[in-house]
Each structure stands twice: as C-alpha cells, then as structure tokens.
Design a protein around this nucleic acid. Structure first.
Lengths: 140, 140
DNA sequence: TATTGTTATACTCTATAACTATA
DNA sequence: TATAGTTATAGAGTATAACAATA
C-alpha cells in the first residue's frame, strides 16, 4: 500500500497547467512519432503548408521558436524530403512543402485533429467552452 | 512590417495548452531563479515540507518524476543545505527540510502564490472558475 | 543599422535500461 | 518478487551569444 501525501500543488492552476500540458504532450508526441514527426516539426509543416514561401524567421516568430533552433529543425525536414527551399533574395529563402511533405502534413493534421477532439471530450461539458479562451488569456 | 501568416494552431486547445504552459513556466522559472530554485525543486521542497520523512520514491510517484531523475535533484538540494536525509530502514531514507530549507521553501511558496494569483487575474472572470477543473480533467 | 541564416553551446526536463541492496 | 536508491545515457525543447552576408 502506498503512502498518502499531503499535496497542495494540484490546487494551483499553474501547476495543473504544467501537468496537463506534460501529459497531453507525451500523448501527442507518441502519436506523431508514428509519422516520424515531433510536435514542433508538425506545427512547422502545417504553417508552411498554409503559407507557402514563408521564411524561417517568420515561422520562428509565429511559433515562438528561436531562429537558431529553426535551423536543425528545418534541416531535418529537408533531409526527410518534406520541404523545399527556394531563395527569395540574397539572404532569405522561401519554404514550401514537397509532395511527400503535403502527404505527411495531411496525415499529421488528421492525428492532431483526432487528438484535439479527444482532449476536449475529456473535459466536462460545462467547462469545455472555457478552456481555449482561458488558455489564450494566459499566453497572449 | 511583418508578414501576416495564416495560422490555425491557436484555435487548437492542445496547442494553446502547450503555449500557455510554456509562457507561464518561463515566467515562474525566472522568479524562482532569484532563490536559485527550479520549478521541480520548489515543488519537491513544498512536498517535503508538508510530509516530513517522505521517501524519494514516494515524492517521485506524487510529482510524476522518475526515480532516476530524483537523484540529481535531491543531491543538489542536499548540497545546498536545504534538505536532510535520515535512514528509515536499510533501503529507504526519509527526507526533511533543514532550517535553511524551511526558509527557502517559505520564500518559494510566497513567489508561487503571487504567481498563481497573477495567473488567475489574467483570465477573464467568466472563464476563471473553469480553468482548474478543465486542466485537472486533462491530466488525471 | 536591422535582419537572415547559421554555428556552437548549454541547461532543463523527461525517459529508459540496468545494477545493487534491501523489504 | 517487488521496491529503493543509484548510475549512465539519450532525446527533446529551449536559451544565449556570436558571426557572416545581405536588406
């Protein structure tokens, strides 16, 4: 039998936020791994798909990923044949999905949509409509 | 002027969860750094404070921290003079806060309480009571 | 002068596998 | 046989500083 601990942490929204994000991230990561994609990569693919010709710097600003961290991320996507780069001018390059990238992105989108639906389904109906607005207020 | 991107991600609760958790964690981490504490260390200190004599394994179970990851964490707290270990039997050891640990934990608690209050204050009042229950449903 | 892409680096968190000793 | 503490290691995310080339 396991010792019962006095634990005030679950009553704290910030702590619950961290635990919930952690648990959910682990779940989504496992599903995306079937496509050999990480969460950050999937989000980058989706954004490139919706914004062909976007630059790495613009992606980073939108997703809050440091420019420096975009480099290995994009390199891996490029080496996997999922994205193509085309020079815009001497210093910028436009990103676009390859044919394989479009397929992979569609598959990732399907996984994410299913995951998001399950997430919402887990929340009691009376709290459900408040989740997204509350989270948005914490972040932006 | 900055390019405006088409970005469906902020409409997804799971994505908003990740972004919100990230933003909030960065903020709390910066504040706890003034005490030379990380979030995980602060949570461990608080739990030890409320459960003197608790074992590392029990802490790990409660906080969802792998036993293996508790080792360096506790080692750092011990080397900082914040916790003491006392053998329970041949294989377990009970953890307790030192006097310095009690002070540091109280300071951490003050920071966390202020942070949690600010967090809630940022959420519009009509969504506020739903945040914790919704998060709890996602996690447990 | 600001921005893009890049390299290098480091820290935090998390995860797994395996070992020893004890219950 | 299960559990406690430990070691070693790895991956993922994030952060900063710095540099060259270009706008």
């Amino acid at each position: 039998m396991t010792q019962q601990l006095h634990d005030p942490l679950p009553m704290l929204p910030g702590y619950a936020l961290r635990r919930a994000a952690n648990a959910c991230a682990a779940e989504l990561s496992a599903r995306l791994a079937t496509l050999d994609l990480r969460q950050s990569e999937a989000s980058v693919l989706i954004l490139i798909g919706g914004n062909p010709g976007v630059t790495a710097a613009a992606l980073g600003r939108q997703l809050d990923i440091q420019r420096a961290n975009m480099v290995p991320l994009l390199k891996r996507l490029e080496e996997a044949g999922l994205i193509d780069r085309a020079p815009i001018d001497g210093k910028s390059q436009g990103l676009a999905l390859s044919a394989a990238g479009q397929d992979r992105t569609a598959a990732a989108h399907a996984i994410i949509d299913a995951y998001e639906a399950e997430l919402l389904a887990r929340v009691p109906a009376d709290h459900r409509p408040h989740l997204l607005p509350a989270l948005a207020a914490l972040w932006r």
